[in-house]
């Protein structure tokens, strides 16, 4: 499949908040109530269209446990977007956000777009973190924010796509050097490089090696 851009994402957050389930809902449109533990990283990919541009998302779903942090850190480099996930029914997963963010700031590209996701919005009756608190944290730290549910698929699509739209906006504003692979962005074949936002229409004929 051809694409204009390829964006690399990383999904981070405490264990059990639903990272793998969000990915599965986004790539396969299904929900698995009890998901295997993620050991190391799992990989997913999907095409999306933003402003009528085909964009390939390459998503790295990471293990949440502290013991895997040294492995997870190596995936920050080269990510253009991050989904930082907590569980609205478990307060501690919200309390740990600052530490995840610090890790991201330290190891990721400074221009990485981060979407904060309060997952399990379908379990509102067990809510331990209010929506306002999530919004507030996102605002203070310059993050995008959505509450979502991997179970009902509510806002899952939006979370991935709004992050991509933000990255695209950054490209068009010239924030990224897209020729540098560590930006987590790859330009599709046939598309003129550079930060131009022009609709040049030169849509790639063939994807790159990752097509």
């Amino acid at each position: 499949m051809s694409y204009d851009y390829l964006f690399k994402y990383i999904i981070i957050g405490d264990t059990g908040v639903g990272k793998s389930c969000l990915l599965l809902q986004f790539t396969d449109k299904r929900f698995q109530p009890v998901h295997d533990l993620t050991i190391g990283v799992e990989f997913g990919a999907r095409m999306v269209t933003i402003d009528s541009r085909p964009i390939k998302l390459q998503i790295w779903d990471t293990a949440g446990q502290e013991s895997f942090r040294s492995i997870t850190r190596s995936y920050y480099r080269g990510a253009a977007g991050a989904l930082l996930v907590y569980d609205i029914t478990r307060r501690e997963t919200f309390n740990h956000l600052a530490s995840w963010l610090e890790d991201a700031r330290q190891h990721a590209n400074p221009n990485m777009s981060i979407m904060l996701i309060g997952n399990k919005s379908d379990l509102a009756h067990r809510r331990a973190v209010s929506k306002e608190e999530g919004e507030q944290f996102a605002k203070e730290n310059g993050l995008l924010f959505l509450e979502a549910s991997a179970r009902t698929a509510q806002n899952v699509e939006e979370a991935f796509i709004k992050t991509a739209a933000k990255i695209l906006q950054n490209i068009q504003e010239g924030v990224f050097d897209v020729s540098n692979e560590s930006s987590g962005i790859k330009v599709g074949y046939g598309r003129p490089q550079g930060p131009s936002g022009a609709r040049d229409g030169a849509v790639a004929q063939r994807g790159g090696c990752c097509g």
Binding site: I39, G40, V41, F43, I71, S74, C209
Partner: peptide
């Protein structure tokens, strides 16, 4: 080398 699949991506698990 060609497809750049780092063995860590699968062999870790």
């Amino acid at each position: 080398v060609t497809t750049k699949v780092n063995p860590q991506f699968y062999a870790f698990r």
